[in-house]
Amino acid sequence: MAGEIPDLHASERTGTGKGAARQARRDGMVPGIVFGGENAPLPINLPYNALVARLKKGRFKSTLFNLKVDGHEDVRVICRDVQRDVVKDLPTHVDFMRLRRHSKINLFIPVEVLNEDTAPGLKKGGVLTMVRPEVELVVTAGDIPEKITIDLAGLEIGDTVTISDVTLPQGTKPTIDRDFVIANISAPSGLRAAEEEDEGEGEVAADEVEATEQGEKGDEE
């Protein structure tokens, strides 16, 4: 289970329709709606500055929130749509869906690296590249993993870690149906350049040998 599900504070919006929504925006709020589950849809207002700050952090539509509305029980929600002003690109309305404990949702889960300090490839000067510092998984709302881990023990330069190398928590699966790369250990740039130079010299030498052999055959004829 994730360590903490972020709180999202809102107030119940009185009145419906365009008039109430415009008034909310004049008051520095963004109107929204909470739907789904067994309860009726709940119109809400969210503080504009707090919402924009959340949006700037990214992954807003794939983050599970604990919605707190005065006079109502806390409920877990996920954003399903953010409507924006076509000119200013600022939020004008937000739709949230209630989630039950057994609901399946897509979330980005952070990747933790183990044994980075002992990996042979890194000790030799290799460079760790995190291709996916987060992995999108299908998870159960009531049992969201805080992280997944990859183990670099024994990995050399040129080795990769793919999703098939990861033991995923029960009830979760990747959203991508292929064995994608999460991280790799590559040679340092200086070593790569030296290897490419050596390969180039080898190709030149091979060309020279081939040219010499062809010349000798021509002399024999």
Rank of each mutant, 00 (worst) to 15 (best):
L114S: 13
L114Y: 02
N115Q: 05
N115L: 04
N115P: 04
N115K: 04
E116N: 02
E116V: 06
D117H: 06
A119P: 09
P120S: 01
P120I: 01
G121D: 02
K124F: 00
K124I: 01
K124C: 06
G125H: 11
G125R: 08
V127F: 00
L128K: 04
M130K: 07
M130E: 06
M130Q: 13
V131K: 04
V131A: 12
V131Y: 07
R132C: 09
R132S: 10
P133L: 05
P133W: 03
E134T: 13
V135D: 03
V135A: 12
E136V: 08
E136K: 14
L137H: 07
V138E: 13
V138C: 12
T140Q: 15
T140F: 07
T140M: 15
A141C: 13
G142W: 10
G142D: 09
D143R: 15
D143E: 14
D143S: 15
I144S: 03
I144G: 04
I144H: 09
P145F: 07
P145Y: 05
P145V: 12
P145L: 05
E146K: 09
E146S: 14
K147I: 08
K147P: 02
K147V: 10
I148S: 07
I150D: 02
L152T: 01
A153S: 07
G154H: 01
L155D: 05
L155Q: 06
L155Y: 03
L155R: 11
E156N: 03
E156H: 00
I157C: 00
I157G: 00
G158Q: 01
D159R: 01
V161K: 09
V161Q: 03
T162W: 06
I163C: 04
S164L: 05
S164Q: 09
S164N: 11
V166Y: 02
V166F: 08
V166C: 06
T167W: 04
T167N: 12
L168C: 08
Q170M: 08
Q170T: 13
Q170A: 15
G171N: 11
G171P: 08
K173T: 11
K173M: 11
P174V: 08
T175G: 06
T175R: 05
I176A: 11
R178S: 13
R178P: 06
R178G: 03
D179L: 11
D179N: 14
F180P: 10
F180D: 08
F180I: 14
V181Y: 04
I182G: 02
A183F: 09
A183E: 05
A183G: 09
N184M: 07
N184S: 12
I185D: 00
I185W: 02
I185Q: 01
S186F: 00
A187D: 07
S189F: 03
G190H: 12
G190N: 15
G190E: 09
A194N: 09
A194D: 06
E195I: 11
E195A: 14
E195S: 14
E196M: 14
E196R: 14
E196V: 15
E197A: 15
E197H: 11
E197F: 12
D198P: 00
D198M: 12
G200F: 06
E201W: 08
E201S: 10
G202K: 09
G202H: 08
E203V: 10
E203P: 04
V204H: 09
V204T: 08
